[in-house]
């Protein structure tokens, strides 16, 4: 009895497993188009994005470009240890994170507001014109923008003149020479340059909201502000969340062009960022390993930030994961 029972149990189990596989394969078969659709891109992503990751081994080598992989000298965690013992590294890390956070706070919220405002403009031609104009500075290079800002803030520049005339200042101030202003200046310059450009994506999300929702809200007697609050904002929620999560993941990838072009020798303690540091103490002095070690550090931090952001946003998004 017991044996047969055992047998039948096993049989049952096998059958269930078979059934499960069968169902699984059925599901796979049903999804064959999805697989076909994504397959070429899987190959693409592996070839172009993951194969080059072998370069990370450089961080553990005394890498010399003319040697082949097998000829390199392995040095273990030497460069990571050096990185974490360098005081300069913590300084540039601080600057990077502070400037990134500032630019996330402003460069993220203002474009949303700006997009909503643009959408509220009734006059179509005016709307289109303003939108086009607002994204023009995106095409002006940082060299030019940095030049405009330094002239604006120079001793004889318009800002000083204005403040002197208004009696807010007694002596002209060398704004660019003050480290404590630098973060603010970079943030404002960035906002000024990219506001319109960054708002395009939000505008696109806003115009895709179903018009019926607005009509329904109007029927309920909601005024424009209520419509923005109850229809527009929830309507672009997903796009806003995903952008937020991805930007948080990117906090450490700051680039260095704008800081480099706006800085001067007197504010270096506030202006130097990680990406420039990696370049100066990496490739510039032919230490490819050091640059790669910084790159790996950045990737790890990014992924941690991304996961944290995703968990937090999930809470705000009624428990639904965004990523």
């Amino acid at each position: 009895m017991s044996r047969t029972g055992e047998e039948s149990g096993q049989l049952n189990y096998c059958f269930e497993k078979q059934q499960k596989y069968k169902r699984y394969f059925q599901r796979l078969y049903r999804q064959r188009y999805l697989f076909l659709m994504v397959l070429p891109f899987l190959v693409w992503v592996i070839v172009f994005k993951y194969i080059p990751i072998w370069g990370w081994t450089m961080a553990f080598q005394d890498y010399k470009p003319h040697f082949s992989f097998l000829e390199q000298t392995w040095v273990g965690f030497k460069y990571f240890i050096e990185l974490f013992h360098d005081r300069q590294f913590y300084l540039v890390l601080r600057n990077t994170l502070v400037m990134s956070l500032l630019s996330l706070l402003c460069g993220y919220t203002f474009p949303i507001i700006f997009a909503i405002f643009i959408n509220e403009i009734r006059h179509k031609f005016f709307q289109k014109t303003i939108q086009t104009i607002s994204y023009l500075p995106h095409f002006v290079s940082w060299v030019v923008v940095a030049g405009i800002f330094t002239k604006l803030l120079a001793i004889g520049g318009p800002i000083n003149q204005l403040l002197l005339e208004l009696g807010l200042l007694k002596e002209p101030v060398l704004f660019m020479a003050k480290g404590e202003y630098f973060w603010g200046i970079v943030t404002v310059a960035d906002l000024w340059k990219e506001l319109g450009w960054n708002s395009i994506i939000f505008l696109a999300a806003i115009v895709s909201i179903d018009e019926n929702l607005y009509e329904a809200a109007q029927m309920d007697g909601a005024n424009r502000f209520r419509q923005i609050w109850h229809v527009t904002l929830p309507g672009i929620r997903m796009v806003v969340f995903i952008m937020l999560i991805m930007s948080i993941g990117n906090l450490i990838n700051i680039g260095f062009e704008r800081q480099f072009l706006l800085q001067n020798n007197l504010v270096k303690d506030y202006s130097e960022v990680l990406d420039l540091y990696a370049l100066t103490y990496g490739i510039r002095v032919a230490r490819y390993a050091y640059g790669t070690a910084v790159g790996i550090f950045k990737s790890v931090v990014s992924i941690i930030l991304l996961l944290v952001a995703n968990t937090v946003v999930k809470r705000f998004n009624d428990g639904t994961a965004v990523l």
């Binding site: 300069q88 020798n265 007197l266 270096k268 100066t280 002095v285 230490r287």
Partner: peptide, 26 residues
């Protein structure tokens, strides 16, 4: 020489000069 005992301290000193000399002059 592409020797990090030479290039790295030198790079650091050059960077320090750019920072300190203006401070000292002013």
């Amino acid at each position: 020489p592409m020797n990090e005992d030479f290039t790295v301290p030198l790079q650091r000193c050059d960077d320090l000069c750019k920072k300190r000399i203006p401070e000292i002059v002013l």
